[in-house]
């Protein structure tokens, strides 16, 4: 992934100190890039990079720097955290303000709150819809008698010991799904799963990931976005132990946990924000289409 992945901050002694002290990783940001001039800021955000947001101290901008940012407001196109005096913030372009979150006085807690806003706002609305519907549609087909009664959560609360990962790549998009399973809870769910072999459970988990992406891609095709599913991989830990997360990249994502805490799904999705794909993913009024009747004889 690009070295620009993460936050850019300008002009930002605060961001720099966060990078140096590793504080960004505590709020799930892998990397922050500190830029020191408005020109560098514009270069960073215009590149084909997965920049997820910017923090700008407006009080420190000169008039010429404000003009430069105003002129490029449309190109920024992703959430910006502005902090400083209100009168200074008001002097920025309305276009920029429409994608901005006024942080007021800068503080790490504001930044943490902003990561949540960024993570949610950068997960396209159409993808959110088809992701939820795809999981609802596919889950009971791979795991019979399993209801996709899930809640959108910030953090898992189940004790998961199996992790299945699968990626999905296409022109202008990258997505990944992580399915966490509590094998002990699954076996206690009903007689269908009581004696299920772990090897078979892993196989089911991988097929589940594969077919969820299949359903998502089937719907992305409706707006002319084509991508390809990679081979899923699975990891196993001790039942009831839960996963110890040692490092996480920040990516726009949603996390859906089944009400019975047998499974949790984290779906990450990144798209270029500087081309039509981004607009399509956020403005499509299409509803979910199930790939049930799709059979083609050549």
């Amino acid at each position: 992934m690009s070295s620009k992945f993460g936050f850019v901050g300008f002009p930002s002694n605060e961001i720099e100190s966060l990078v140096k002290t590793g504080a960004l990783s505590e709020i799930n940001l892998k990397k922050g890039q500190v830029v020191t001039t408005t020109e560098d800021l514009m270069t960073a955000i215009k590149g084909p990079a997965f920049v997820i947001g910017a923090i700008i101290n407006v009080d420190r901008l000169s008039d010429s720097e404000k003009n430069l940012i105003n002129e490029n407001a449309k190109a920024i196109g992703f959430p910006v955290g502005l902090y400083g005096e209100k009168s200074n913030i008001d002097r920025l372009s309305p276009e920029l303000l429409s994608v901005s979150k006024n942080l007021g006085k800068f503080a790490i807690s504001d930044l943490e709150g902003s990561t949540k806003i960024f993570r949610q706002s950068l997960f396209p609305s159409y993808v959110r819809t088809i992701t939820k519907e795809s999981i609802k549609f596919i889950l009971p087909k791979v795991f019979p008698d399993m209801s996709a009664d899930f809640n959108e959560v910030e953090k898992d609360s189940g004790q998961y010991n199996i992790l299945v990962n699968c990626e999905n790549h296409g022109a202008g998009i990258f997505s990944a799904i992580s399915i966490s399973v509590d094998s002990a809870a699954l076996k206690n769910l009903n007689d269908t799963y009581r004696g299920i072999d772990q090897v078979i459970l892993l196989d089911y988990g991988k097929e589940l990931a594969n077919q969820i992406f299949g359903a998502i891609n089937f719907n992305l095709n409706q707006i002319d976005i084509y991508s390809r599913v990679a081979l899923p991989v699975a990891l196993v830990g001790s039942p009831g132990s839960g996963w110890r997360i040692t490092s996480r990249h920040f990516r726009p994502s949603i996390r859906l946990e089944l009400a019975n805490k047998v499974m949790s799904f984290q779906v990450e999705f990144m798209a270029k924000t500087t081309n039509d794909i981004w607009n399509q993913l956020n403005s499509s009024k299409l509803t979910f289409n199930a790939p049930e009747e799709s059979i083609e004889i050549f």
Partner: peptide, 23 residues
Amino acid sequence: TETNPELKTRGKAAGVNGWIVKP
């Protein structure tokens, strides 16, 4: 699970006679 038209074209060229989408 794949529905990409490019893959279908490659499949046809390789001798595939039909395409069924999972599930």
